[in-house]
Design a protein around this nucleic acid. Structure first.
Lengths: 103, 103
DNA sequence: TCCATAGTTCGAATATAATCGAACTATGGA
DNA sequence: TCCATAGTTCGATTATATTCGAACTATGGA
C-alpha cells in the first residue's frame, strides 16, 4: 500500500506554516480537522470546491507539515500533525486553533 | 503632523496576520522589532533591499495590523502592536516570536 | 474483468504578489 | 529658499498562486 511522503519535523519551516495558514480555505480545513479531533477524508470537507482545488490545498498543507495523509483503501485519511508542530514551534498551532475556535 | 492610518483591533483578520508573516523579509523585520523592543525607522533594517521594496513590506505589515508607524519629523518610527495582537489572538504573535528567537 | 469511488496530476487561464527604478511628498536644517 | 533625508507611490516586469475541467491512478467490490 503506497503512502504519501511528508516532510520530517526538522524540515518544517515557519514561513511555510504561515503561508499555508494564510488561505481561508486551508484555515477552514485545519479548523475542521482540529474540531473533529479525528482523521477525515478529503471528501468530508464540504467546501463547495472541485476535487482538484481541494487536492491542491491539501498538498500545500502537507508540504507545510501541517497535515498528514494516510491512504486507507480508496480513501485518504487526513490528520493534523499537532504534536509534532507543537514540538517544533510551541504554541503556534495551538494559539491559531484557539483563535479559529473563538471566531 | 500627518499620521498613517492603521486598522482597528477588531478589523484585524487572522489570515492577514498569517499572510504577512509568511514572507521571510517581513518575518525578519518582525523579529528585529521584537528583539529591539523599541521603535525603529525603516532605514534601520539593513536588509539590502531598495527603499520601495521595504516600503512595500511595511505597508503589508501595517495593513495586517502587526506594525504601527508613527511619523516623527522625517522619520517613520515602527513598532510591533504586540499588546493589541495578543489581546485579539492570544499567543499567536508571542509563539511566533519565540520560534523566531530560537532559530 | 468491469465499474464506481477517492483523490491526484496536468494544463491553461486568471489573479495576486514581489521587485525595483524613478518620480513624488513631507519635514527639518542651513 | 534651497537642499538633503526618509519614506511613499507609481508603473512595469516578473514570479508565484489560485482555480477548475479533464485525464489519470489506485483500490475495492460486484
Amino acid at each position: 500500500m503506497r503512502q504519501i511522503k511528508h516532510p520530517n519535523i526538522d524540515q518544517i519551516e515557519l514561513t511555510d506554516i504561515m503561508y499555508a495558514l494564510s488561505d481561508p480555505t486551508r484555515l477552514e480545513i485545519v479548523a475542521r480537522l482540529a474540531h473533529a479531533g479525528r482523521k477525515m477524508t478529503c471528501g468530508e470537507f464540504d467546501l463547495n470546491r472541485p476535487k482538484s482545488s481541494m487536492s491542491h490545498h491539501f498538498k500545500i498543507l502537507r508540504a507545510a507539515g501541517l497535515v498528514e495523509t494516510l491512504i486507507e483503501g480508496t480513501e485518504h485519511m487526513n490528520a493534523l500533525r499537532v504534536d509534532e508542530i507543537e514540538q517544533k514551534f510551541p504554541g503556534v498551532l495551538a494559539s491559531v486553533l484557539k483563535a479559529l475556535a473563538s471566531s
